[in-house]
């Protein structure tokens, strides 16, 4: 069970959050099919760190991006 750094509320317990998946850089809406395809479906499979979205569902409802070390679960700022 992680302790997740919410930008508004500070470190809070994982049960307050909803996972938002791997962080992506949303293309503009009118970007091409292949742009969207690359962002949405093509993922690198790093063993070191992951950038991901979290949603502070049971708190301030903030969406934010963090970098997590996949080996230690430490969050990097």
């Amino acid at each position: 069970m992680l302790l997740i750094p919410c930008p508004n509320c500070g470190e809070r317990d994982e049960i307050e959050f909803d996972y938002g998946g791997r962080a992506i850089q949303y293309p503009a809406l009118n970007n091409s099919m292949s742009d969207w395809h690359m962002v949405l479906h093509q993922r690198d499979n790093s063993t070191e760190t992951i950038e991901e979205f979290w949603y502070h569902q049971s708190g301030c409802e903030c969406w934010f991006k963090v970098t997590r070390n996949l080996n230690t679960h430490e969050f990097e700022s």
């Binding site: 503009a28 809406l29 009118n30 091409s32 099919m33 742009d35 969207w36």
Partner: peptide, 11 residues
């Protein structure tokens, strides 16, 4: 217009 899903709907 462009909207969420408009690009990949063309698949």
């Amino acid at each position: 217009k462009a909207f969420i899903g408009s690009s990949l709907l063309q698949r």
